[in-house]
């Protein structure tokens, strides 16, 4: 089954703490009034400009196996093969917060409104992460009639041993061009604030793994730790699962040269 829909920008609006964290501002630091004003302006711009959309398509395990193999460049030792093979349901997904936001950010840079441009970029990136969490939730809800205990988490090409070249097969199957997302020869998605991947539904324990694979050493994301912590602490289930396991954009806290 294939579905696509829009999000209201307010549905995926990040909280201020997460946006500021993305800007490299620690939680314990109280931002100045000027920074707070820039943040407020960026949020208003996001609500006005963002056109978030998502698309999802159910896949069987055997179909996904073919997609996952891609160009045969996945890490031999990786957690996802074990995770998806235990899943009760699988779906490919892609989402975007829209091209308009990227254009707006670019325009703001050209107008030398650097701080606002960078803040809007952080709002859009964290919103894309929230949109993934929202997609996980929507898929979980859609399965509740048949699979009420399923926990859904998303996994993306380029992470956890799934080679980025997996994007090609994913796109061939899902056809997210329908909602305006394309990839280039380097598997880069346009609009930039887009995420694609696999939604894996199943018993919570299937998502647990020991994150000591070869590629974990060079991973700058490490969101798996938090995701697994949430699974091990189900009382936290209703709180927002923050994840950055998607192909979004540069993370200031990691590098400003992206």
């Amino acid at each position: 089954m294939r579905q696509s829909s829009l999000f209201n920008p307010t549905e995926i609006l990040p909280n201020e703490k997460d946006i500021l964290k993305h800007q490299g501002i620690p939680e314990e630091h109280t931002p100045s009034t000027r920074i707070q004003n820039i943040l407020s302006e960026a949020i208003i711009l996001f609500i006005g400009e963002a056109k978030p959309q998502w698309i999802r398509a159910q896949v069987s395990r055997s179909e996904f196996k073919a997609i996952y193999l891609g160009a045969g460049e996945n890490f031999i030792e990786n957690p996802l093969e074990n995770i998806y093979s235990q899943a009760s349901n699988l779906a490919l997904f892609a989402l975007t917060v829209g091209l308009e936001i990227s254009n707006k950010i670019e325009n703001l840079f050209q107008q030398k409104e650097y701080a606002l441009a960078a803040m809007l970029d952080s709002v859009a990136s964290t919103a894309a992460e929230n949109a993934v969490a929202r997609c996980e939730k929507l898929y979980e809800e859609s399965l509740q009639e048949t699979d009420e205990t399923a926990t859904v988490l998303a996994y993306s090409p380029g992470y956890c041993g799934w080679h980025i070249s997996g994007q090609k097969n994913l796109f061939d199957y899902l056809k997210p061009e329908q909602i305006g997302i394309t990839i280039n020869n380097h598997f880069l998605m346009t609009p930039l604030k887009s995420v694609s991947g696999l939604l894996v539904a199943g018993p919570p324990k299937i998502h647990l793994f020991k994150n000591n694979f070869d590629f974990c050493r060079s991973c700058t994301d490490k969101s798996c730790t938090e995701r697994m912590w949430k699974i091990n602490h189900p009382e936290e289930k209703n709180s927002e699962i923050r994840r950055t396991n998607g192909i979004t954009t540069a993370d200031f806290s990691q590098s400003s040269a992206g």
Partner: peptide, 14 residues
């Protein structure tokens, strides 16, 4: 070439 991420590059330029 092939990459469209320019935020970091813009920050370095600034």
């Amino acid at each position: 070439s092939g990459d469209l991420h320019d935020l970091g590059k813009n920050l370095v330029t600034i």
